[in-house]
Simulated scan of single mutants.
Amino acid sequence: MNKKISILVITIAIIILLRCIFDSNENIIYIVAGINIVAIVFVLYTIIEKILDDIIDRIKKSEVPLQIIKREIKNTQLKIWGWTIAFSAVVIVWYFLYACSGLGNDIISILALGISVLDDEIIKKITEIYRI
């Protein structure tokens, strides 16, 4: 956990520095969009890690052979990370090409904050829904 906190602190410091440096840049909307996307990706990464930990614990507690457990863990990780990365990439590219604006940036920052506040409930719901 301390490693994640140090990475977060360093990332926040770099983001603040970049925001201050490029404040008068004409492409500030894209810079802020990048900052907000980094924030929401970090929040989603921590949530996905917690979801995977919960699902892996459920798989390990099942009474199946170790070989099947290892296969299920690998498949679960591939499914969750694969879909998440593919969906995120499509949304990020679409946002930068078609919807990047000050309002869009505000919406992304509010979403990142809201998701981070509700992360425990999100993790609980998704792990309940996910079938092993």
Rank of each mutant, 00 (worst) to 15 (best):
M1S: 12
M1G: 13
M1K: 05
I5R: 02
I7V: 12
L8F: 05
V9C: 15
I14E: 04
L17F: 02
R19P: 14
D23P: 09
D23V: 02
S24Y: 07
E26F: 13
E26P: 08
I31C: 06
I31A: 09
A33F: 03
A33K: 03
G34N: 11
I35L: 05
N36T: 05
V41H: 04
V41M: 08
Y45C: 15
Y45D: 14
I48E: 11
E49C: 14
K50P: 07
D53Y: 14
D53S: 15
D53E: 10
D54M: 11
I55R: 00
R58Y: 15
I59L: 07
K60C: 14
P65L: 01
L66M: 08
L66I: 11
Q67M: 08
Q67R: 06
I69T: 10
K74H: 09
K74W: 00
K74I: 06
N75K: 04
T76V: 04
Q77V: 03
W81D: 08
G82W: 00
G82F: 00
W83M: 15
I85S: 09
I85P: 01
F87C: 07
V90F: 07
V90Y: 06
I92N: 01
W94P: 00
Y95H: 02
Y95T: 01
F96G: 00
A99H: 11
S101P: 03
S101T: 08
G104Q: 15
I107T: 04
I108S: 02
I108V: 13
I108M: 10
L111K: 05
L111F: 11
A112C: 09
G114C: 09
I115G: 02
S116R: 06
L118K: 09
D119K: 11
E121C: 10
E121R: 11
I123D: 01
K124Q: 10
K125P: 13
K125A: 08
T127K: 09
